[in-house]
Nucleic acid binder design. Structure first.
Lengths: 257, 257
DNA sequence: CGGTCTCTTGAGCAGAGTCAATGAACGTGG
DNA sequence: CCACGTTCATTGACTCTGCTCAAGAGACCG
């Protein structure tokens, strides 16, 4: 079993991605009470309609957020990768509005809600880091809407492949050209709002054209620029490039008080 | 010109919708430095790629968030109604990832970013209220993805009509059965990921069946239950019913620290 | 009174869905 | 080690929902 520090480290790492976390903040995070568990693929970590009982992040493995329509159709609304908070919304909302399921075997760190909430509200640097995390998530949701609402099948799939590539790279998983994508084509279809059959055809086309190669559940991007252009992809919405900063006050703006 | 208090009051009202704001918090909000302006329909309030220069909320009027694809297609990702923050994300992100345009003539209150940020980070009750606001927005984005990704045209449109109905009612605009919907059919199409022509046909069908009536830009819901069922609508995701609260600590959960 | 926007409606088309069959990969237990 | 079952990927043939193109009708405004 890894040390206590090692378990919370991915959280610190994620927050530090877009914010400055000093030693004191770091210590406060590492002092959080938490528990750790390992779960099987397809385990429900959160169910729509249930009161959340914890606030967790993914230490390892993948998960996805999902909602079902009354017709039984499923829409995947986001993919969570190691280091992501799984249910930040549980911090302040008392009923879950969607389901969260693991994609793979995963280790989850559950943090005591009151302690985390206090940290968020009382320690500005941590509060800011969590705010940024939540705001970036919202930005990804917006782009997801555009993807599903206004792009054709080929573009949609190329786009989501680009998104995964960059997010995984930012998380330190996979390099430029290759990454694990532990989703079935059916799940991919539910993520982009298509049918599995059609996803299959599009993936085949992308392979045939030499933009990507596939083996098992991993994707190798052969022609990044072309995939990016086919996918109408612009990474701005991921807010990866320090675009979240404290020199904000330097912008010309409104009265300051 | 209304009093200073009257101008910030919609913000207090919105926050108080789902949180408890005491007198001291209220006073702190009313002490914020701000400016107020009135803008024409279709004015850009935020542009993708630009550094945000303010943090504002809609005092009156309607607006929408929007992104464009390289093909020139537009996807509307949310509608903002009076009392909504229009760029909470500007509080902590330094580049805007989408456009925000007014739908109607609107009055906007711009708040000084540093002062607001300080308030959010240092006054727990206000921080919590803003968190809830942001988390509910994210929930609405998720439902929007489901709507656009997995529902057919008829269901999509019925769903969005239900959403507007409830949100406007919660904001104190319009009653159960009638509300202003100041959108063209083209804008509605961009919101649900369809073409204006098809939106027109579906609206006509819904009218013909007696579920709604339309006149100019207002909608009258004649058969709420039926519209709700056609639209596969469940209001949970709006988190309107006190489901955001502080008795949260009462839930059985994880270690507390 | 003409111009511009928006709404309506029709006719034909096509991108993606449905249905269905086959094949590959993998785990399990005999 | 192999037969079997299950899950996932692949491919073809056909269908249909929603799109495109196009034209006409209101409404509003300078």
């Amino acid at each position: 079993m890894p040390s206590k520090e090692a378990m919370l480290a991915p959280m610190v790492r994620k927050l530090a991605l877009r914010s400055i976390i000093d030693e004191e903040d770091r210590a406060a995070i590492l002092a959080l009470p938490f528990a750790r568990r390992t779960v099987d693929p397809s385990t429900y970590l959160v169910r729509e309609g249930e009161p959340p009982s914890r606030c967790s992040f993914l230490e390892s493995g993948y998960a996805y957020r999902q909602k079902l329509t009354s017709e039984g159709a499923r829409q995947i609304v986001s993919i969570q990768i190691p280091g992501d908070f799984i249910d930040l919304q549980n911090l302040f909302l008392s009923v879950s509005d969607h389901n969260l399921q693991t994609l793979t075997r995963a280790t989850v760190v559950d943090i005591a809600v009151p302690a985390l909430r206090e940290l968020v509200l009382k320690r500005p640097a941590i509060g800011r880091a969590m705010w940024i995390d939540a705001l970036v998530d919202a930005s990804i949701f917006r782009e997801w809407i555009v993807n599903v609402g206004r792009r054709d099948a080929r573009t949609r799939i190329a786009h989501i492949l680009c998104e995964f590539s960059l997010r995984l790279k930012a998380a330190g998983l996979g390099d430029d050209s290759r990454y694990e994508l532990p989703m079935t084509q059916e799940q991919l279809a539910d993520a982009v709002g298509l049918t599995p059959v059609h996803v299959n055809r599009v993936l085949k086309a992308l392979s045939d054209e030499g933009l990507i190669t596939r083996e098992k559940r991993s994707i190798c991007v052969k022609q990044w620029d072309k995939l990016r252009s086919v996918g109408d992809f612009s990474e701005r919405y991921l807010h990866l490039r320090g675009g979240t900063m404290g020199d904000y006050d330097a912008f010309p703006g409104m009265p300051r008080g």
